Simulated assay, not measured.
Amino acid sequence: MKKPPALSIGSRLAIVSPSWGGPSVFPHIYQQGIRNLKNLGFEICEYPSATLDANELFHNPQIRAQDINNAFADNDIDGIIATIGGSDSARILKCLDIETIANNPKFFMGFSDTSALTTTLNQAGIITFNGPSVMAGFAQLHNFDDKYQSYIHDFLFSNPASRLLPTFCQYNHGYPDWANIEQTGMRNPLLNSRGPQVLQGAQNVSGQLFGGCIEVLEMLKGTEFWPTPDFWHGKILFLETSQEKPSVEYVRYWLRNYGVMGVFDKLSALLFGRPRDYSDQEQIELEQTILSVVREEFFNSQLTIVANLDFGHTDPQVILPLGIQCEVDVQTGQLNLLETVFA
Rank of each mutant, 00 (worst) to 15 (best):
D277E: 13
N122W: 01
E327K: 15
P316L: 01
P189T: 06
N60A: 12
S150K: 15
Y151S: 07
V260M: 12
V216L: 03
V260P: 01
F298Q: 09
D329L: 02
P166I: 08
P18E: 09
F138G: 04
A161H: 10
R187D: 02
S87D: 15
N180D: 15
F108C: 13
N55E: 15
N69E: 09
E56M: 08
G312P: 04
E285I: 08
N55K: 14
F168T: 10
E285G: 08
Q302G: 03
E99L: 08
Y258V: 10
R295G: 05
L7G: 05
G273E: 14
E43G: 02
L117S: 06
S24E: 03
T304W: 02
Q66A: 06
P321Y: 00
P321V: 01
G312Q: 03
P189C: 08
K221A: 08
D78R: 07
A6N: 11
R274S: 12
A269M: 09
L271S: 11
P23W: 00
S301W: 00
K38P: 01
F72Q: 09
V328I: 15
R274H: 11
L220S: 04
K94G: 05
L117G: 03
N257C: 04
L37D: 02
K94F: 02
T100G: 10
T128W: 08
F210Q: 04
L303G: 02
F272W: 08
L335P: 11
V16P: 03
E244F: 08
I152D: 07
Q66M: 06
L13E: 06
Q140N: 09
M186W: 01
G259M: 07
